[in-house]
Design a protein around this nucleic acid. Structure first.
Lengths: 336, 336
DNA sequence: CTGAAAGCGCTTACAG
DNA sequence: CTGAAAGCGCTTACAG
């Protein structure tokens, strides 16, 4: 492609008959003292010449580029990841930073991606995971990562921002109880941290209310949850409906599981929420709001994690590493 | 966060007792001539010191950073956008470039985002749209954008890569015809370029086969398609089923529309594909593969657009601006 | 209020 | 085969 030779401060200086330092001050140094005349003249010439700041040059001087690197496992692919980036991006821009997202490709070590990012001399670096898990950072790089998003650094050396899975599960169960539901089953995502923690919350909330649950069932056969694994959802629902105690509410591991529960319930001729309530986790809007009836679901705090991450990264006073659990929020629709 | 002072080439040079130029040659100049001894020694010291190339410094020298800027309307949010980035990213990495994605926020002019990106002196810049449309680039910036992805530059000044909507519609209709379907209706996305072009393909394919269609209906009321607009899908399906000529196939504007068609058909007690076939556009995997039965749908060439875009951006010989339509591909599942 | 110069960390002619 | 120097476009003490 055609490359127009970029105009530099010295081009402007020459044209304005002033020094480069004066131009720099006029354009970027908000508080630099000079006559208003000079400043206006310089600005006008810069505009006329189509000057665009060269951040690389400033960067080599300052030692860093106004970038916040975000390295994530797998491509920033899910709607959730997008929310994280949205949160980061908003906060970054107000600080004059841009978000530079780099993904590690399968087979690539986390260390090599981190190195790749460091080459650009970002101001700070975050690590973000697609789903809530533990991540082991190589020793030499633990210090280079300022915050973990949606994951915990295995050795606890880095501040981590994660969803409060247990609290979220508690909240949705309480909501079902308030709605008068008493026979509740949970079709959970097996083999992942979120599933384990939510199950704890689920059990705790029911115990607290003195109510027995109808069981916790795995959505798929594989021990680690994966969309590719054969689904067990339909058979669980059928078994549940045939059992002595028919549930009056089914809590689902995510909205896709809920989608299958809806289908199984429709096949059985049951109406939601009249015959049976359905609730879930994720708030994957495209699914949840399109389901009939629209799905009541717990939204993950992805945007908040992103926003808070940027605050931590850009903070003047670094805090000691800690784990911060952010609350889900309930999105009420019509399935309960 | 703690910042370790970065090690520079001169640190290595000092330690190795050679000049900076030798270090630079040993580390980065693949073909630079020097004794193997020197090269090995320099590399070992670089490793030991944890040297990381300073791309900002190299960039100020070369005039550009090894970045390909991608500016898009709205956040890289949809699964489709992700595929574009995936395509770009793969091609970029093989060329030693990183993808730098910047979105324009609502209210921000396209010119100002482009300027923002230019500050980083990227090697090349692409513009990507969330959905197929025409985009007007400001005159002064048309030359700065090397390729349009999923959109056409309004004045045709920039090479544009778009899905072959008309061809895709033709192909899926032919597929329905081969499957023996003869009474086909189309619930289309109104008011967007993709919808208009697909409708042309739909009509052409049926005309070519000498078959009448059962009508083209808008999925939503609003003239511009939006997920927020009230859906008309269910009522179209009901009307279609009640009409004299019941359809044996419904083509849907996208997978979310298909999802609603499934629901309406289920309510009517009709089986897919035995009673009626359903096909669609998008291949939004989370929906299409989760539907029961899994949905046959035309996948958009997003990844291919991304890959090809990078080739165009990085090409030695720039081509004159042209419009390139990339083919959809059929994802056969079980709904036809 | 403004200028001349040094220096950030690289790469690239130019010498030897 | 290797070095010393210039220069990329900035910003920041240091002078005046």
């Amino acid at each position: 492609m055609v490359r127009i030779v970029a105009v530099s401060l010295s081009d402007i200086a020459e044209r304005a008959g002033v020094s480069v330092k004066t131009v720099s001050g006029a354009l970027h140094g908000g508080s630099a003292r000079m006559s208003d005349d000079t400043r206006q003249k310089v600005k006008a010439i810069a505009e006329e010449l189509g000057y665009v700041t060269n951040l690389a040059a400033r960067g080599v001087r300052q030692g860093w580029l106004p970038l916040v690197g975000v390295v994530s496992d797998g491509l920033i692919t899910s709607p959730f990841a997008t929310e994280i980036v949205r949160g980061l991006d908003g906060a970054a821009r107000s600080a004059g930073m841009a978000v530079f997202a780099v993904n590690h490709r399968s087979g690539q070590s986390i260390g090599s991606v981190l190195d790749e990012v460091q080459q650009f001399r970002p101001r700070a670096v975050a690590y973000a995971a697609m789903y809530h898990k533990d991540v082991a950072l190589p020793d030499r790089l633990a210090g280079a990562v300022g915050v973990m998003i949606n994951c915990r650094e295995a050795a606890g050396r880095v501040t981590a921002l994660v969803p409060d899975e247990e609290g979220g599960a508690r909240e949705i169960v309480r909501y079902l109880l308030v709605a008068g539901r008493r026979r509740i089953a949970f079709i959970n995502l097996p083999g992942i941290l979120a599933g384990t923690l939510r199950e704890m919350g689920f059990r705790a909330a029911l115990e607290e209310a003195g109510i027995d649950h109808l069981g916790v069932f795995p959505a798929v056969r594989r021990s680690v949850y994966s969309d590719r694994a054969p689904s067990l959802v339909a058979s669980h629902v059928e078994a549940l409906l045939k059992s002595g105690q028919r549930p009056d509410a089914i809590l689902c591991g995510n909205d896709r599981v809920a989608m299958e529960v809806y289908a199984a319930l429709a096949r059985a001729g049951l109406r939601i929420p009249d015959d049976i309530a359905v609730a879930s986790f994720d708030n994957q809007v495209e699914i949840a709001s399109r389901l009939d009836p629209p799905l009541t679901t717990m939204a993950l705090p992805h945007r908040a994690m992103g926003r808070l991450a940027m605050e931590i990264l850009l903070a003047e006073q670094p805090e000691p590493p800690h784990l911060r659990k952010l609350p889900f929020h309930l999105v009420e629709r019509a399935s309960v």
